[in-house]
Computed example of a mutant assay.
Amino acid sequence: MNAFALILLAFLAITFLQSGYDKIADWNGNVSWLKGHFSQTFLKNQVPFALLTVLALEIVAGVLAIMGIAENIMSGATIMGNYACVVSCVTLLMLLFGQRIAKDYDGARTIVIYLIPALIGVYWL
């Protein structure tokens, strides 16, 4: 059992499953806000599809993180945890891209705070 892996994967599971839940619980509110956020970009007509894509990746990342926790506790392996970190990085890069396109540089900076631990996980797991 690797305490670093367990803590990192718990962080990713909490982050992405809560974010996914929020998107599901307030789908219309999220779509409405994001349409305004991207209204001056080439993504303005792609908001529902983009949000669904991010939602799917967040759920996958969160589930993989939980699977990684279970795998690490049971066998000490980190394969699922590594997959969770990779999917998390892909998801965060998509979010970062969107924030940069929308010229929301503070939002982009915030995403980097989440990207750093995910990248460390890719490296160490």
Score class of each variant (00 low, 15 high):
19 S>N: 11
92 L>S: 12
51 L>R: 02
72 N>V: 03
82 N>S: 11
107 G>R: 09
100 R>K: 12
22 D>R: 12
74 M>L: 13
34 L>T: 10
36 G>Q: 12
124 W>R: 13
62 G>E: 05
19 S>A: 15
75 S>Y: 00
31 V>Q: 00
7 I>Y: 08
119 L>E: 03
23 K>A: 10
98 G>K: 09
50 A>W: 07
106 D>S: 15
94 M>F: 12
35 K>R: 14
13 A>I: 13
112 V>T: 12
57 L>N: 11
109 R>M: 15
6 L>P: 04
54 V>D: 09
67 M>N: 06
21 Y>A: 07
65 A>F: 07
119 L>F: 10
8 L>K: 02
39 S>G: 10
45 N>P: 00
123 Y>F: 15
121 G>L: 02
59 I>W: 11
99 Q>M: 14
106 D>Q: 15
56 A>Y: 04
75 S>C: 00
5 A>P: 05
12 L>M: 14
97 F>H: 08
73 I>L: 12
48 P>T: 11
98 G>S: 13
16 F>R: 07
35 K>W: 03
103 K>A: 12
19 S>H: 08
71 E>R: 02
119 L>R: 02
114 Y>R: 01
73 I>D: 01
60 V>C: 12
79 I>L: 11
96 L>N: 12
121 G>K: 01
27 W>A: 02
100 R>V: 15
